[in-house]
């Protein structure tokens, strides 16, 4: 990512220059990338800061439900896979924070916003991982849904975000596969394992569909974000794509998504699915999901417990620097 230092201070917020705006839009229309020190409308900057930092927070909070099983993975192979995967989420959070930092916000400020409840993260991580099958379901469904969202972001108009997403998508390519492999193993296993697998699908199916966000009709920012090429497909388009890909995958291993209305529509070539319960979505968003409080408590604790460590390293670096300066002066 480019350094935040390359950014110029945001101009005072007068009415934005129509000519600059037109040139900016023309550049986007030509599929040219916007880079950190290019002129950009303040709303574009703020939209990106909000979206990229939310994305980063989601990766970091997303380490928790899967991390919940790091110490209980059922085989050493699964333990190694899960460790590598949860570590990747941390790396992806890091790349994304760095991309957001190029827009002139510090990581510390973004973390504050998260810990003070002023920034959001993906609601999906407010659901619990209660059995091992949830680890399979998270990889298969949650990462599967995330990839649908993320692949178009590799072409996002903002250069640092697009580059971070290219790296993330490359690294994530094993995440969904390992999840599907894990849940397939259960689906083909003992009765107890199969029950676990179906139960996980029952619980993760609808929350995964909700990951794509509200219906297009109720999605306030979609139009502008599409025009700015921060977003390339609508929520409903991506959701349909996900359902079309996932239903056959479930049936292939003998699992059934919990939707009685699910049927293949020959005419459109798409799977028809039932109504999403948006009241649940809004409840989780409002902080009343099963694990909202636990997730934030875990993040606040890690941040608070780490404060003295971060300070120690800073203090030591300063001491070392001044000793070196003194030694140089003495020469």
């Amino acid at each position: 990512m480019y350094t935040q230092g390359l950014n110029q201070a945001v101009e005072d917020s007068g009415p934005e220059d129509a000519e600059l705006l037109a040139r900016f839009q023309a550049k986007i229309d030509r599929e040219e990338k916007i880079e950190p020190n290019d002129w950009m409308p303040e709303a574009y900057r703020q939209t990106l800061i909000r979206q990229i930092s939310q994305h980063a927070h989601s990766e970091i909070v997303g380490m928790l439900p899967e991390g919940n099983w790091l110490t209980r993975a059922p085989s050493l192979r699964r333990k190694a896979i899960l460790l590598a995967k949860v570590q990747d989420e941390g790396g992806h959070g890091l790349y994304l924070y760095a991309a957001a930092e190029t827009l002139g916000i510090s990581r510390a400020e973004m973390v504050d916003r998260l810990l003070e409840g002023r920034a959001r993260y993906s609601s999906i991580f407010n659901y619990p991982t209660i059995t091992w099958a949830d680890i399979g379901a998270v990889g298969w469904l949650v990462d599967g849904a995330a990839i649908m969202n993320q692949i178009p972001l590799c072409r996002c108009s903002y250069g640092p975000y697009a580059r971070a997403m290219i790296r993330i998508c490359k690294e994530e390519s094993f995440h969904q596969r390992q999840g599907y492999e894990a849940i397939s193993r259960l689906a083909k296993g003992t009765a107890a394992q199969k029950r676990m697998a179906q139960d996980a699908l029952d619980r993760w199916w609808w929350p995964s569909l909700m990951m794509f966000g509200p219906s297009d009709a109720d999605s306030p920012h979609t139009g502008r974000s599409m025009r700015w090429k921060i977003k390339r497909f609508t929520n409903d388009e991506l959701r349909q794509k996900f359902v079309d890909a996932t239903v056959p995958q479930a049936r292939l291993i003998g699992l059934e998504p919990p939707d009685p209305e699910l049927r293949y529509d020959e005419e459109s070539g798409h799977w028809h699915f039932g109504e999403i319960d948006w009241t649940e979505f809004n409840e989780v968003l409002a902080g009343n999901g099963p694990c909202n409080r636990e997730r934030m408590a875990a993040r606040r604790k890690a941040h608070a417990d780490g404060a003295w460590v971060r300070e120690a390293a800073t203090a030591h670096a300063r001491k070392k620097q001044s000793r070196m300066a003194m030694a140089a002066a003495a020469e």
């Binding site: 970091i60 380490m63 928790l64 991390g67 790091l70 110490t71 333990k79 460790l83 590598a84 949860v86 570590q87 941390g90 790396g91 959070g93 890091l94 924070y97 875990a298 604790k301 890690a302 417990d305 780490g306 404060a307 460590v309 971060r310």
Partner: peptide, 18 residues
Amino acid sequence: SEWVGHGPELEEDIALAN
């Protein structure tokens, strides 16, 4: 592995996992 997701800074969390 008990540390992963709870490290004192993101970079250190990744290092502990390594």
